[in-house]
Simulated assay, not measured.
Amino acid sequence: MDQKLKLWFTEHQTEDYGITFRVNHVYESEQTEFQRLEMVETDEFGTMLLLDGMVMTTDKDEFVYHEMVAHVPLFTHPNPKHVLVVGGGDGGVIREIMKHPSVEKAVLVDIDGKVIEYSKKYLPNIAGELDNPRVEVIVGDGFMHIAKSENEYDVIMVDSTEPVGPAANLFTKGFYAGISKALKEDGIFVAQTDNPWFTPELIQTVQRDVKEIFPITKLYTANVPTYPSGMWTFTIGSKKYDPEQVSAERFHDIETKYYTPKLHNAAFVLPKFVEDLTK
């Protein structure tokens, strides 16, 4: 007889659709000051971080999201030295940023210190670079950090949850305007912008708002199995550099599992129904 714990968790990605995992062990389950946090173990995807009942990252597929958030803007910018990550307390984006020798300092600002604490404990392969001397970790409000910054960063990456709870302000036009102010004159930013199957209106709104602020605004995609629909989008806003016009000489060798220079360009080739959301 199978003696495995038969505890199943379902993330309800819409009212009528969800994705279900068998959970073998619950490491942590608590209501933090900001959100419901669970750290669980699954057979299919390994250790998994859940926030407010949504899958944030897993051992098995985390590299897709983190590589595509970090490397697309960092290879687009010719000399990124000062980088900011808003959210991303699991440390995956920071890990990828540290692969770029030009980066002198990366600042991570996450509102929930428990995410950072438990990621270090249970997701060491993801959070391992949070103690790197080139990294400054701030437990605080990313929206307010942006508001207080001016002409400071070469690249800003918004690694947020979906636009609910503490992350709602990170999907507003005012926030994107603040990002523009916080960036240097040739700065670039990228934000995760959910999926085109269930949240097309969100993508349309973000594209419209970012286009009003950044002269170069584009959408790209990646496949993340544990995120709603598997197709995930990212919006990039750039003051000067076109992410589809990166010279071959700018790419340098880094260890990746998903991202490649060829994929960098291919990610901007969108299915027609997704391309229509950018118009």
Rank of each mutant, 00 (worst) to 15 (best):
L5H: 09
K218T: 08
S247N: 12
D276W: 08
I116K: 03
T199E: 15
W8V: 14
Y220K: 04
V103C: 07
E255R: 13
T172P: 11
H252K: 11
T172Y: 02
E150C: 08
G46H: 05
V137D: 11
T226M: 13
D43H: 01
L37C: 03
S29D: 10
E185R: 13
L7F: 12
E30M: 04
P166C: 00
L263R: 14
N125M: 10
L108Y: 11
H82I: 00
K121Y: 05
A248Y: 12
L130M: 12
L84F: 00
G187Q: 03
L74S: 04
R36N: 06
K6C: 04
V246H: 02
D194V: 00
E117W: 02
E62G: 02
D112M: 05
G87D: 13
T217L: 11
T278H: 10
D159L: 07
E255Q: 07
T233C: 12
L183W: 04
P80W: 01
F189R: 00
K6T: 09
F63N: 00
T172I: 08
T235C: 14
P80G: 06
V164A: 10
D90H: 02
S229P: 08
M1G: 11
Y118F: 09
V85Y: 00
E162T: 15
E41K: 11
P228D: 03
M157Q: 11
T10E: 13
E41A: 11
G53C: 09
H77W: 03
L5P: 05
K218L: 06
N132P: 11
Y176K: 14
E96W: 03
R22N: 15
N125C: 07
E67H: 00
F251P: 09
H71Q: 07
L277P: 03
V115R: 00
F214M: 11
V269A: 12
D209M: 12
K148N: 06
L183E: 07
V26L: 14
V69E: 12
A106S: 08
K218C: 07
P228H: 01
E44F: 10
G178D: 06
V107K: 03
I111H: 01
L50I: 14
D112A: 07
H82Q: 02
T47C: 09
Q3A: 14
S238V: 03
E212Y: 06
P271K: 03
V86D: 13
I146D: 06
E41L: 15
D61H: 14
N195Q: 14
V40E: 04
S29T: 14
F63A: 11
V210Y: 00
T20Y: 02
N24H: 12
D186Q: 09
N24V: 12
P228M: 13
P78T: 10
G53I: 01
V135H: 01
E275P: 02
F189H: 01
E28P: 12
L219T: 14
E201D: 09
Q3M: 15
T57S: 13
T278F: 01
I111L: 11
A191H: 00
Q31I: 06
G187C: 11
